[in-house]
Design a protein around this nucleic acid. Sequence first.
DNA 1: CCCTTTTTGGAGCGGCCGCATCAGAACATT
DNA 2: AATGTTCTGATGCGGCCGCTCCAAAAAGGG
Lengths: 200, 200
Amino acid sequence: MRPRKFDEDHVLDQALELFWKRGFQATTTRHLEAELGLSQSSLYNAFGSKQALLTAALDRYEARIDADLVRPLAEADAGLDAVDGFFVALGHWVTNGGRRGCMVINLMAEDGGATPEIRVRTRRYRRRVRTALRCALRRAAARGDIGAVDVEARADLLIGAVLGVNIAARGGASVAELERLLAGTRQQIARWRVLTPAGS
Amino acid sequence: MRPRKFDEDHVLDQALELFWKRGFQATTTRHLEAELGLSQSSLYNAFGSKQALLTAALDRYEARIDADLVRPLAEADAGLDAVDGFFVALGHWVTNGGRRGCMVINLMAEDGGATPEIRVRTRRYRRRVRTALRCALRRAAARGDIGAVDVEARADLLIGAVLGVNIAARGGASVAELERLLAGTRQQIARWRVLTPAGS
DNA sequence: CCCTTTTTGGAGCGGCCGCATCAGAACATT
DNA sequence: AATGTTCTGATGCGGCCGCTCCAAAAAGGG
């Protein structure tokens, strides 16, 4: 009968921000209290536990990632340019706002496969990204942008590169180092491109 | 005047094993006490702090890594085969004993760049591996195994792949997934090889 | 064998953690 | 305005953390 004084979605975004910056474990309920301007009882009343808060925040985060990074790869005309564009966009995600990498991948590293829910979620996430990349590579091959061989292996190479650049960001690598990692990947993508005879 | 009842090096290896499996933060001094069979006072008397214990253990670990993975790349005849061999050896490191990845990279992810000493150490580590890979690639190019272009970019691609496969291992990826990641990288390495005319 | 020096185990320190409890404030309803 | 319900803030709980302290044991050197 009494409405909440706060907006749940906004609080979730703020909580995610903290988890993202500090890491999940290192973020205490007191930190959340201070940053979100809510007492712990309000938090626990609304979300139940620190874990549940993370889960709810991650759902929103993944939706954002999906819209920004994965969906463009799944569009009907997404080919090699989309794959390259993915790594450009990933560069933005990884370097903006204090270089904290991708939250899901940070979490995978932090948790170390200890929490089943996290393990399942991160595996699903990797799979989704990999599938999207492979899908775009297949289209690129069908269209003749790249050779039709090694599409699977190339998708595996790329998902590894995604994990690598993220963890470098998380580990405090400089922007220059992150850009080198991304450039290395994009250079390889460019070299996959089949050179069509000039003027054809 | 009274000798230690334990062997320091052995204790360091055991401590590293625990830090590796559980993560540094998640390993408590009580865990160490139980696993190493030493009281906390002995540990603190011998090493000073949990951080210092980690540092000492890491020094030994890095020496092992260096001998097993990095040194072969630095040998005079190390070319593209050595680079490929590096990823084979990395596969062993990453999948053996419960798939816990590489300790230094796990630590980089766990710490998130928060501790200066860790940040410096992990950066130095990445740099060392990258330099060794680039060095071997240069030799491979000079020898004509691969094209002479993009050596830098290729080294960056590979160091990203190293980080990626490690963090996947740390995050609880299956052996099959880890092997796919490694195979994707090795496939790309193989494709760099310049095909010499048959029988030449 | 005694004395000195170092190591050892056990108990305990202050501090922080996630979370629960509960009286009272705040609001929609009547 | 009275009512009834939900939300809020303060306080505190048991538990674990890294680390310290100290008496007693262990092993040199003389």
